[in-house]
Nucleic acid binder design. Structure first.
Length: 280
DNA sequence: AGCCAGGGTCTGC
DNA sequence: GCAGACCATGGC
């Protein structure tokens, strides 16, 4: 576990974690793995997860989740920030590879969030051939147009479930300005809400079968499927390869990625993705 | 102004 | 099986 204690925050509502390890909020929320958080100032963000709107703030090795109760922390945030995983050990394993070591040393506080399966799937359908800034805008409009009001500390909207989108038309989605992806969103919503694609059964499938199941959706290929598995289903072995990772592969792994890291290569990908995009 | 973006589909060899 | 056009939009 990557913190030593959690308690009610001193100054009123909220919880405070102490003794955080392997945790940099700005890197975690700003690295392009999620699209529902906005930075208010360095170390302070507001966003929505599982229908709860919160401000989160890091000060050194402590993290404050404003407005949250201890129960909410246990129900949602511990899992969301993947705090049960020992990232010190993950980093140690990754550092056995020279290129991964460079990436890990560049952002030692990186972590992979555990987002909701449908939200991750739908968000990364929207992400295709798109840039992070605009993805965030489209996702924000999607939530505000079709999501329910979020609980929490400021006005915000939950991510709309597949059932809320399944009966819409491409015309209904036009205000999102998401282009050719509108049809893909609708196909995903319809197949997931009808059970033609069963997200609740994904955990029981091996990597190949899980990928195939997700790729039954139009607009879901290998990369989007890998993103859904890694970010939405907690599958650390799923490795999204986008244009940035292709550059990293060409530079560091002309012979392919290190097989011995296979079961955590998705996590390694997150360090590498951030490194390759941001290094000087 | 023109290239690019956390890709995928469809067509034509 | 694999390359190439095409997709809709806006950030830079």
């Amino acid at each position: 576990m990557d913190y030593t204690s959690v308690s009610n925050a001193k100054d009123g509502a909220g919880v405070e974690l102490a003794g955080l390890k392997s945790f940099c909020l700005d890197d975690i929320l700003g690295c392009g793995q999620c699209f529902r958080w906005d930075m208010l100032a360095p170390g302070r963000w507001r966003g929505v997860a599982r229908g709860i709107a919160r401000e989160v703030e890091q000060r050194g090795d402590s993290l404050i989740i404003h407005g949250a109760s201890l129960q909410e922390f246990g129900d949602i945030w511990h899992n969301y920030f993947d705090l049960g995983r020992d990232y010190g050990e993950i980093r140690r394993l990754l550092c056995g590879d020279a290129a991964m070591r460079r990436a890990v040393e560049y952002t030692p506080g990186m972590r992979v969030l555990r987002q909701e399966p449908w939200e991750a799937l739908c968000s990364f359908i929207i992400s295709q051939n798109n840039n992070i800034k605009r993805i965030k805008g489209i996702v924000a409009r999607l939530c505000k147009s079709f999501g329910q009001r979020a609980e929490g500390d400021f006005e915000a909207w939950a991510f709309p479930g597949p059932g809320a989108l399944a009966s819409l038309t491409e015309e209904d989605l036009a205000p999102l300005r998401c282009g050719f992806r509108a049809g893909y969103i609708l196909d995903a919503a319809r197949q997931v809400s009808s059970g033609a694609v069963r997200l609740s059964g994904i955990d029981a499938l091996d990597a190949e079968a899980a990928t195939a199941e997700l790729q039954k959706i139009r607009g879901v290929g290998p990369k989007v499927a890998a993103c859904a598995l890694l970010y939405g289903f907690g599958r650390a072995d799923a490795v999204p390869v986008d244009v940035w990772m292709r550059r990293a592969l060409a530079e560091f792994y002309p012979g392919g990625m290190p097989k011995e890291l296979g079961d955590i290569l998705g996590l390694g990908q997150q360090y590498m993705f951030h490194y390759i995009r941001n290094r000087p």
